[in-house]
């Protein structure tokens, strides 16, 4: 399977179970990279869970760091300008009614990011979220969608499909799944609406 995908001069590769690295010119944008923060120009954390981001690894990181509730602007609706890239912070949380006990990602703990690169290339990394109503209000043309699909603490393939149907991204790279069957399920139902690609 392909280990990286390039589109309009931007190259995406996966890191661990959930994270991605996005190469734009000489800068690497790392989203939820876990411990793999080498060569990152900026680390964008959707929340501080060890598979996503951890202070243990980030304490020595010298580059730009975005962590919700810690850094200015990293909250839903926030806009951060980094060189020629504009980052829109969007909500991400677990819907309480879907969980018997406390939701794993309560509202306010987490965010998603829409990275708006030049050439109208918008990448939406959703973070750990349910299919929440705020997603329907996103008024951006998404080029590449990176949704979690593994169910449990995040969306199921069927819920991620609702996002695809709503946003109609050109390409979708699913992340955050343990079993390849979850990829198959998502791929089979989402393919008519987007180009699904499995990155290794």
């Amino acid at each position: 399977m392909p280990r990286e995908l390039s589109l309009r001069g931007i190259t995406i590769s996966r890191v661990g179970l959930v994270g991605v690295k996005i190469q734009h010119g000489d800068k690497t944008y790392c989203i939820d990279p876990g411990s793999e923060i080498e060569k990152c120009y900026i680390v964008l954390c959707t929340h501080m869970h060890v598979k996503h981001c951890s202070y243990e690894y980030l304490s020595s990181f010298k580059g730009e760091l975005l962590v919700p509730s810690t850094h200015a602007g990293v909250e839903p609706g926030g806009i951060i300008q980094l060189g020629d890239t504009n980052i829109l912070v969007v909500p991400a949380y677990s819907k309480p009614e879907l969980y018997f006990e406390a939701p794993p990602h309560p509202k306010g703990c987490c965010v998603g990011y829409i990275l708006r690169f030049p050439n109208n290339l918008n990448i939406y990394y959703m973070g750990d979220t349910s299919f929440i109503e705020e997603i329907l209000r996103i008024n951006e043309k998404i080029t590449i969608l990176i949704p979690p699909i593994g169910g449990g603490y995040v969306m199921t393939p069927e819920e991620a499909l609702e996002v695809v149907k709503s946003l109609r991204p050109a390409i979708t790279i699913p992340v955050h799944y343990d079993k390849v069957e979850q990829y198959y399920r998502f791929r089979d139902i989402a393919q008519p609406y987007t180009q699904v690609i499995k990155l290794s």
Partner: peptide
């Protein structure tokens, strides 16, 4: 049309790297 912003060509090299262009690109 909606086709303009969808992937037209996806190329994969034997070495495992991929590139894509939409119809517009």
């Amino acid at each position: 049309t909606w086709i303009w912003s969808k992937a037209a060509l996806i190329w994969e090299g034997e070495e495992g790297v991929a590139r894509a262009v939409t119809y517009g690109e």
